[in-house]
Design a binder for these strands. Structure first.
Length: 306
RNA sequence: AGGGGUGUAGUUCAUCGGUAGAAUAAGAGUCUCCAAAACUCCUGAGGUGGGUUCAACUCCUACCACCCCUG
């Protein structure tokens, strides 16, 4: 942390609906920063309303990275995110500006601050598809048992009920070189989390979902569905996946809206849980926005001095 | 008003004259390549008052609430 050769990077974290976007833009203006989003859905073009993507207006002239960088049919993973962000931070730092990473995708953030090295087992699409087929036909346990035979040590470290983990472990067992993981964070970072009382946060989330519907979320999904189908990655996000059954006439409108609200609340809760697992996070209550901004400034100035 | 029905967890629904089960919500948690994903754990209940009984959520009864039918 004290290593002054490492570039300084500011993180603004917090659950969805906490108001991090607004405060981050204000901070970027004050400290000559550029924003890099840490959001697994906002990377996709055209998925605007449901992902609560920052609008041009909200950006307030601040440069934003990591938004609209992928077509909906493309894949994007933590690994890609880390590559992208390392690059952007370097560019911004070179310009003498402060990189501000803003977002709620916990793993993206954690990967950066803990300097995850994702190893050398690349993704093999076909291999994965085959495993998925096998899980479908023989069950997850069958595949897990196979993994145990191939690499019992690796198998014992993962959750055998979790298909995603089992598939990934199998991939590592098959293609990885077994090189040890080495983590190495490249930044002198400051973590600030924007929070709200649970009750307030839930209230805001519910209101925001209603607003999204008003703003034409259903139309957005309808046109995206027509264009890309339902299997593209961002279509699995909250606010999208719930609308598909509604469009097909399988559930009622109000039902669908309530589901989006519920899933968003669940998600916010998980984000908070994830945050708790990260050290050195400074929490700032955003009930009073101006006060929250000033508190953030205080924290940041102390950190910039070091 | 008369007749019938239903009252069990926040909600939907089980079961049983002898420790009341589940689904779902809520809550907590896990996390090194789909993470807005995937997975794990878990609090919590028989309307009210009487009666029968060793024992009532269960049977009887009154009341209350809700629903349906008739007028």
């Amino acid at each position: 942390m004290k290593n002054s050769k490492k570039p300084k990077v500011l993180f603004i974290l917090g659950p969805t609906g906490s108001g991090k976007t607004e405060i981050a833009v204000r901070l970027a203006k004050k400290y000559n920063g550029e924003i890099i989003s840490a959001d697994s859905v906002q990377v996709y073009k055209e998925f605007d309303i449901g992902s609560a993507k920052v609008t041009k207006n909200e950006m307030g002239g601040i440069t934003h990275h990591g938004i609209d960088i992928k077509s909906p049919i493309e894949e994007f993973s933590v690994y890609d995110y880390v590559q992208y962000t390392l690059q952007k931070v370097e560019e911004i730092t070179k310009k003498g500006k402060l990189p501000i990473i803003v977002g709620g995708t916990g793993l993206y953030v954690k990967s950066l601050i803990e300097g995850y090295n994702f190893g050398d087992a690349e993704k093999h699409q076909e291999f994965r598809a085959n495993l998925e087929e096998e899980i479908k036909s023989h069950g997850l346990d069958y595949v897990y048992q196979k993994l145990c035979q191939k690499d019992g040590k690796l198998a014992s470290t993962i959750d055998k009920n979790n298909p995603a983990r089992v598939i990934r472990a199998f991939e590592i067992a098959s293609y990885g070189s077994g090189k040890k993981k080495t983590n190495d964070c490249k930044y002198d970072f400051k973590l600030i989390a924007i929070t709200l009382k649970r009750e307030t946060l839930y209230y805001k989330i519910n209101a925001r979902v209603d607003k999204m519907i008003e703003d034409g979320l259903i139309e957005e999904v309808k046109s995206l569905y027509k264009k890309y189908g339902e299997s593209v990655q961002p279509m699995k996000a909250i606010g999208y996946k719930e609308i598909l059954p509604y469009l097909k006439g399988e559930i009622q409108k109000q039902n669908m809206i309530d589901l989006i609200k519920q899933h968003t609340r669940n998600y916010a809760k998980r984000q908070l849980t994830f945050l708790r697992g990260i050290d050195n996070v400074r929490y700032i209550d955003n009930n009073d926005r101006d006060r929250a901004f000033l508190n953030a400034c205080k924290e940041i100035e102390e950190w910039l001095k070091v």
